[in-house]
Design a binder for these strands. Sequence first.
DNA 1: GTAAAATTATGTTTTAGAGCACAAAAGTAG
DNA 2: CTACTTTTGTGCTCTAAAACATAATTTTAC
Lengths: 233, 233
Amino acid sequence: MVKKDFSVSEIIESIAELWQTLNDEQREMLVKEFTVQRFKKNELIYCEGEKPTHIMCLLSGKVKIFKDGVGGRSQIIRVIKPMEYFAYRAYFSGGDYVTAAAAFEPSVICMIPMNIITQLVHENNDLAQFFIRQLATDLGIADERTVNLTQKHIRGRLAESLLFLKENYGVEEDESTLSIYLSREDLANLSNMTTSNAIRTLSNFAAEKLIAIDGRKIKLIDEDRLKKISKIG
Amino acid sequence: MVKKDFSVSEIIESIAELWQTLNDEQREMLVKEFTVQRFKKNELIYCEGEKPTHIMCLLSGKVKIFKDGVGGRSQIIRVIKPMEYFAYRAYFSGGDYVTAAAAFEPSVICMIPMNIITQLVHENNDLAQFFIRQLATDLGIADERTVNLTQKHIRGRLAESLLFLKENYGVEEDESTLSIYLSREDLANLSNMTTSNAIRTLSNFAAEKLIAIDGRKIKLIDEDRLKKISKIG
DNA sequence: GTAAAATTATGTTTTAGAGCACAAAAGTAG
DNA sequence: CTACTTTTGTGCTCTAAAACATAATTTTAC
């Protein structure tokens, strides 16, 4: 269940990485300016072509960044977990959003106006370096992803996505069931394949005892073999 | 032909965008620390897995950033033209290179130690913002590219690459022959296809009078139609 | 200048994965 | 509870693009 409210101190804890770079005066400004917004499951947060105005920090929930391509096929570019920042790239590059964002699950997001952030970046070098590090890391991931999505075969891409989802969103108490319950369609869009191929390949993985499926619950059974499949493509 | 030598003032002109952010003291430090290196055609500049130590600015020539994927297939991630900076992402993210770089043509590169750059970024906010803008822009391009490479068909991808090469490296005096002469293999690696498909599709384009080919010289004849092919995928 | 290697060109075969059709199951709304 | 929509699951067909084969041409090396 989603928390009904977030106290200022809880929010500060969530945006800690950015918060730590600020001095008292800057912190005060931030507290005055940020807002908190709630999104329903599957609700659109921003869309392609829009002008970016706020940096967003996910307080709770799960978010996908995606792009609609040729013939309505959607591609998930990256996913966001709590305490991560997103939606700021476009503003820094001086353009509009080239991607869209939507909530996988009910999500709560802290919004900070980008003009405030720009001002803070201007006067605070640690904050500037925080963004340099973030962007450099994301760009590295994007470069890796380009090759994986274009060169690996379906099984390799799906195995990779499953392992990625474990890395990113973690598992339940049993230590092996993915904490995120994605539709087959989202799983397909994450792995660059059609929905039917995601369904089919998932069934194959289950038949091979690599995973166990119960509706949208996916349990990773043989992670070593999944890694091998992901690696060889 | 490649210039035999570059004077300090010529180099400064090339690295202008970064240079402008610096004060006199910082500029002096930079002049003391940078080195210039020359690379032969196809020579490797850095490779995947290596520790990044220098930011590089291409003074003259043409460079490809690429990644070797599954089964020896190489994917060109982006290309660099004179006055552009590269090779700094990995250092900022705190990791090793995830890509490799090689010279398309004889190239001259100005190398600045990354520890100097980090120091300058630390004390100079404009420089930090320069890198934020660069990285944000490159990440946007990478996001676009991911979808184009995975969703468009061969003809669309090749058409896009040809138009991109015109945008990026320009054309000769006739206003329509690409200034870069790539091997069919490089063209394939840029467009995510096999070499034979690059050759075949290029021949098809020529037969359809979209382009004219003379060895590695490619002349764009019907750019409008190429754009259409690139757009619809 | 000649041999060897690399690149380009074209034809043929094979296959991974898209596309489509349909049915069953699970959600959702009234 | 019932009707309707969405999601999941399977089978079948078809096609885009890879893989392979071979030859011609160009480049490189000695």
